[in-house]
Design a protein around this nucleic acid. Structure first.
Length: 716
DNA sequence: GTAATGTGTTTTTTT
DNA sequence: AACACATTAC
């Protein structure tokens, strides 16, 4: 396959660039992913570079996956396996697993999630007798996180602390860090910081990686923070073949420490850098690009540039003013139904919003309408209670000394062990100098406890021990499958007998599938590797483009994706731009970039909505249209508005936007006709009247439909 | 030791 | 409105 076929001159230049520092300024939809994958394939095939000598850093695990697949496809075989492709966090995690022990990071280190981290912060605050109201754990945690983004450590941070709050954060940090170390755990930021420390304190390790990576490529460079910048500089320090790709207009992670200067000042860092600009857009219509540009051009301090395209003008951008969030959701579903009639499938549609909280109202409407959807983010799969519970058991199998996991695992399923028994056991373990888990197997310790508790603890320790035994020989997926049964978790959920419990059990089984997939794609079958991998999984990684469902997600999650039809909802002052962003320096600019990212996801249709009233913390608030909407010239727009509920005649009409028609009264067994699906038979009816949801078997498929929306009529 | 009830907090975005 | 956390009741 010709690696250069179909590429424009700038893309070709980027793909074939011989070596040395390369900056690719790639606008939205300019084919940057394509350039990156073709460049890697080119280096391997045309330049004879061994795949193992390439490091490619992506923004999400999903992007990493896709890149690997595309490279294999380009080169016509499974060539990509040895390439190091992954997020900064995944790459650092791999380095630390191999060499972390040189700086005191155990090979089977745990990666603490948000919950675990917050618990340690609160413990530290309590130890320092600091009031949580005056020193909110979330704020302290964020301060520490930001400092780690800057590659600072507690000592240097303490030295430059200039306020009482910062001094408190520095004191908390020391205790927090000691607690992590004691648990053999790292937080997300530590993955980067500890890798940097490893390189700093052990130059021989750094040299090994520097020599190995002849080419380093970094995607989404505009969203790298200082620690990541230092990592790139260190890893590419020997061969200086560093290619970075990014777009300053799409920098949306400043709050996480991302520093646009990394991309704006690349030429200062590497004076001999080649700079290539990709400005031709292959994704969107002229109208969509014009609307996006009309917004982004209001930002100061940007590389002034305008995308252009050979694509058609396309339809005007739609704008809808809804009465409230529910009306907005109904409008979205109305439109989606209309698009369906035009032959556009659910999988081609995305509904975007600023905050996860907005997804709830939308989701309700999707359920009511029976339109298939997937929500990316929100309550994350790996933060669900049952998943975290099971992971606690698994962590315990890998690291028996880990206190937080022990607590969690002991609590569910209930086995009659509470604070009191655990404290007694912990005290005994302390004096005996063993772990709590070991104490559970000592008769001397168990004799001090009531009979029932002693039995339960003994059985618990036995369960963990047998799982640990299994983990020495079996791959992670099989250990997990055993754990679901051996811990009594399956039994507990089955006993509940509710649909919810069944769903939880399904989630746990899903974990087995995930483990199998990870084993196959990484080639590392062990439980420890799997647990570390899991901690790094992002929301977008769970987004699937192979299912025919409408995708609901935040503007942030949408970065890097594209859809034929895109809805951007909630375009109101205070929401997008968000109030919390506006009291920060440069916050408004970033909100505008976020909006720009949203618009430029759309290929052919862009639909914008805002509501006159929206509930904040449950209380309705009036809101005005976002300034970003006002920035779009009216000739690009086709606007529409919900009726004013205060107008007299409007008050007499039903509030619902549902088509006014007779609601058929159906019972199971009835024959019905659907505009699109043809004739079918009713299997089940849930609810009554307009709110009812019916399950109908059509010739092709069985579907759940909302009676009030679905164009369903009795067939006689 | 656990379940029921009450209270306060939450929403910005995430590797 | 929804959820986590604390307190109370059993």
């Amino acid at each position: 396959m010709d690696l250069l076929a179909g590429l424009n001159p700038q893309q070709r230049e980027a793909v074939t660039h011989p070596g040395g520092p390369l900056l690719i300024l790639a606008g939205a939809g300019s084919g940057k992913t394509r350039v990156l994958t073709h460049r890697v394939a080119y280096l391997i095939r045309e330049r004879g570079l061994a795949p193992g000598r390439i490091l490619a850093v992506t923004f999400t695990n999903k992007a990493a996956h896709e890149m690997r697949e595309r490279i294999d496809r380009l080169l016509g075989g499974p060539v990509a396996r040895p390439i190091w492709i992954g997020t900064f966090h995944a790459v650092c995690s791999r380095i630390l697993r191999a060499d972390g022990e040189r700086v005191g990071v155990p090979a089977a280190f745990a990666i603490y999630d948000e919950d675990d981290q917050r618990r340690l912060i609160r413990d530290a605050l309590a130890e320092l007798r600091l009031d949580e109201r005056r020193f909110p754990p979330a704020a302290i945690h964020a301060m520490i996180g930001r400092a780690k983004d800057e590659a600072l450590d507690a000592e240097r941070y303490a030295a430059r602390a200039s306020s009482f709050m910062e001094e408190a954060a520095a004191r908390v940090w020391r205790i927090y860090q000691a607690a992590l170390r004691a648990a053999g755990a790292l937080d997300f930021d530590d993955l980067l910081v500890e890798t940097l420390r490893l390189f700093d304190e052990h130059p021989d390790v750094l040299h090994r990686y520097q020599d190995r990576f002849e080419h380093v490529l970094v995607d989404e460079y505009q969203d790298t923070n200082h620690a990541q910048y230092l990592l790139v500089r260190a890893l590419a320090g020997r061969h200086r073949n560093v290619s970075v790709v990014g777009d300053d207009d799409q920098s949306i992670y400043r709050w996480r420490g991302a520093d646009v200067r990394n991309i704006l000042e690349f030429e200062r860092d590497y004076p001999d850098a080649t700079v290539i600009t990709l400005a031709q857009n292959y994704r969107s219509t002229k109208t969509i690009l014009a609307a996006a540009h009309a917004v982004i051009r209001h930002n100061p301090h940007r590389h002034a540039k305008e995308l252009w395209t050979h694509n058609a003008d396309g339809l005007p951008v739609s704008a809808y003013e809804a009465a409230d969030a529910a009306d907005e959701a109904r409008f979205v579903l109305d439109r989606i139904r209309g698009l369906g009639a035009e032959g556009i499938r659910p999988g081609e549609i995305a509904v975007l919003y600023r905050t996860n909280a907005q997804s709830r109202v939308l989701e309700e409407e999707f359920l009511r309408a029976g339109v298939p959807y997937q929500i990316v983010g929100g309550v994350r799969f790996y933060e669900r209670k049952e998943v975290k519970d099971l992971l606690a058991y698994l962590r315990l199998v890998v690291a028996p000394g880990e206190g937080a996991s022990l607590r969690r695992a002991l609590a569910t399923p209930r086995r009659g062990i509470g604070e009191v028994s655990l404290a007694r056991l912990a005290a005994w373990a302390e004096t005996a100098g063993c772990t709590i888990l070991e104490a559970m197997r000592r008769p001397e310790a168990l004799d001090r406890l009531p009979r029932a508790q002693a039995r339960a603890l003994e059985a618990f320790a036995q369960t963990i021990a047998s799982l640990a035994e299994a983990a020495t020989t079996l791959p992670a997926s099989q250990v997990i499958a055993r754990a679901i049964a051996a811990t009594g978790y399956a039994e507990m959920l089955e006993a509940e007998g509710t649909e919810e419990a069944q769903g939880r059990l399904d989630n746990l089984r899903e974990l087995v599938t995930v483990a199998q997939e990870v084993e196959e794609s990484t080639g590392e079958p062990g439980l420890a590797a799997f647990l570390q991998h899991l901690a790094l999984v992002a929301d977008v990684d769970t987004y699937r483009d192979d299912v025919d469902r409408v995708t609901l997600m935040t503007l942030h999650s949408a970065k890097g994706l594209e859809f034929p039809v895109v809805f951007v909802t909630g375009l109101e002052e205070g929401l997008c731009p968000h109030v919390r962003a506006m009291d920060e320096e440069g916050g408004l600019d970033e909100e505008r970039r976020l909006c720009y990212v949203g618009f430029t996801r759309a290929k052919s249709r862009l639909i914008l909505t805002h509501a006159r009233s929206r509930a904040v913390f449950g209380a309705p608030q009036l809101s005005v249209p976002s300034r970003f909407l006002e920035e779009i010239p009216s000739h690009l727009l086709s606007a529409q508005s919900a009726p004013d509920p205060w107008a007299v005649e409007a008050r007499l009409r039903p509030a619902s936007r549902a088509p006014v028609r007779a609601i058929p009264d159906l019972a199971p067994g009835a024959r019905v006709r659907h505009e699109k699906f043809g004739e079918g038979r009713v299997l089940e009816v849930e609810g009554e009247g307009a709110g009812a949801i019916v399950t109908v078997r059509f010739a092709g498929a069985t579907r759940r439909l909302a009676l009030s929306y679905a164009p369903l009529e009795p067939a006689d």
